[in-house]
């Protein structure tokens, strides 16, 4: 097929961001293969619109596509519900304690709603602000904060974070 002149820029973006987006997707869905599928779909969709995507907003656009794909996919696909099992095998170098922590965390993540997992991924892995997450998901900042608080409450039990260090989300 013809190779548009903008493909080089698109490829640079893929090389720079695919791995990061896959990590975000993994945190949302808990499955590396599904995460890679979501990233592939994101980049195929991004390709369609790349000539009209400004480079400075490409990252936000890609993240928005990925998140929407994840949320809409979860609604439609009952066979892909979050499993209570740990989806990935821990590395051989892990100590028993580390493995136990990961299992707990995986189960805690599985207990979150789709939107809560997306918010956790965007807030704590992608380092987006509450306002940025609200904008990306098209919801109120207060809703992001309340979802974050509930998600952290679930995770807190696993992480064992001292309650005296709790503070309002900003």
């Amino acid at each position: 097929m013809g190779k548009p002149g903008w493909e080089g820029d698109y490829v640079d973006f893929f090389v720079a961001r695919a791995a990061g987006l896959r990590r975000t997707a993994y945190l949302m869905c808990g499955d590396w293969q599904l995460a890679e599928d979501l990233v592939q779909t994101t980049f195929v969709r991004l390709y369609q619109h790349w000539p009209r995507v400004r480079r400075e907003t490409a990252d936000a656009y890609a993240r928005r596509i990925l998140t929407n794909l994840f949320l809409s996919r979860r609604k439609k696909s009952s066979r892909e519900q979050v499993t209570e099992d740990v989806p990935e095998r821990p590395g051989q170098h892990d100590t028993d304690h580390e493995v136990g922590d990961r299992i707990d965390l995986a189960q805690a993540m599985a207990g979150l709603s789709d939107r809560q997992r997306a918010i956790v991924a965007l807030r704590f892995v992608d380092d987006l602000s509450v306002a940025e997450v609200a904008e990306l998901l098209g919801i109120a900042e207060g809703t992001v904060k309340s979802h974050s608080a509930r998600a952290l409450q679930t995770l807190r039990a696993v992480l064992g974070t001292p309650t005296d260090l709790e503070r309002p989300l900003t």
Binding site: R23, Y26, L27, E98, D101, R102, L105, A106, M109, V120, F124, V125, L152, L155, R156, V158, L159, T161, L165, E166, R167
Partner: peptide, 13 residues
């Protein structure tokens, strides 16, 4: 707490 969550999620990845 933010940092603890980030570190835990980092190890989860």
């Amino acid at each position: 707490e933010d940092r603890a969550v980030r570190e835990a999620l980092g190890s989860y990845l």
